[in-house]
Design a protein around this nucleic acid. Structure first.
Lengths: 192, 192
DNA sequence: AGTTTTCTGAAACATTTGTTTCAGAAAATA
DNA sequence: TATTTTCTGAAACAAATGTTTCAGAAAACT
């Protein structure tokens, strides 16, 4: 004896994510969001909650997508070294072709200090990427394709933080060739 | 036959910079700003201009401070290699001790896509640091303290973008030891 | 089909936003 | 000191913000 929610919450969150991604948390207004989501604010507040909650879910969703992407890479059957190389090259590709770069990085700088719940999601996302990289690096060392004279944990942290600077560089200089050269240098350095 | 501006524009801009630095452009309200600057909004609009103009000047000021800092380093009389090492270690220090990290990085991610004038200031700031690093790297190569098998330009870009990732890492993980280890690894890699 | 519960749309809400107004105080010149 | 110009403080402005309200439409159940 009741009605169901009409709109697709998943599709709506996806749209909200895109708006936050482009405008940032403070730059996105409720009207920007509900317009993109194609729902009324009453529906939003009835089902999802307020702006912060919507934002949290948007970031969560972004992290979920990345997790899936990483799992797909692990199931590709390629060698550890090649998975790493692909991961780096794909990062370069995202940086130089997608309009808004990486949402996690952008949000870390905007609300990492102020929104504890979002910061926790971003930290977990970073931790997951870290484990992914550490395990691959370990395997690549055993394969003999990466020099084994450093701890995999250190290298994983180092990798993980490297792309962030490339994002910033591309925002400022819009020079894709520059990013590709840095990536090439990076790969050369770690290859045995 | 006229009155002079009462408040110190330089001190006020400094205060505005601090507010923007902490809260971001969209997160800082005019009332936040004028309260910190200890001036009335009428004075602000009479002398400096609107919020965007104040923001531009704040970022400009930040860039000026960095320029001065870099010039001071060049005049220190130390070897190119040591100036580089100090620069890296000081960056680590800023990341792990100052509450709000680097303003230029934060703003690049928040408004780099939307505010052309600010983006230009940030780009010039980045270019200046680039030249500083490139020249030092060239000198260090001539000194023989850095391996000369890469182009100084590439290494300068690579350096310049490296700290950014460390900032993000510290925001998420608040692990100073992690940053110091990455910096040590970085220094070891470039040292001959 | 009737009942009941829930969702939706439009409008309204109180605050906060960036900005402007203006009367009076302040000070630099003559 | 008188004059004139300009700055300052407080208040007001319209527009935008995040959020709530509520009447009616919609649909799941009996």
């Amino acid at each position: 004896m009741a009605r169901n929610v009409e709109f697709n919450e998943d599709q709506a969150t996806q749209k909200a994510m895109e708006v936050f991604w482009e405008k940032g948390y403070n730059g996105a207004s409720l009207r920007d969001l509900t317009e993109a989501m194609k729902i009324n604010s009453s529906s939003l507040y009835n089902t999802i909650g307020d702006k912060q909650e919507l934002f949290l879910r948007s970031v969560q969703r972004y992290a979920d997508d990345r997790k899936k992407d990483i799992k797909r890479r692990l199931e590709s059957g390629k060698s550890a070294f090649n998975i790493l190389i692909d991961y780096i090259n794909d990062a370069v590709d995202v940086i130089t072709t997608k309009k808004n770069g990486c949402m996690a990085v952008k949000m870390a700088f905007e609300v990492g200090h102020t929104d504890k719940r979002v910061a926790d999601v971003l930290k977990a996302d970073s931790d997951f990427a870290f484990s992914f990289l550490r395990d691959l690096i370990k395997s690549a060392m055993e394969e003999g394709s990466i020099a084994a004279d450093e701890e995999p944990e250190l290298l994983a942290d180092y990798f993980n933080s490297t792309w962030t600077g490339w994002y910033e560089s591309y925002i400022l200089h819009k020079d894709g060739e520059k990013i590709r050269r840095m990536a090439q240098f990076f790969i050369k350095q770690i290859s045995k």
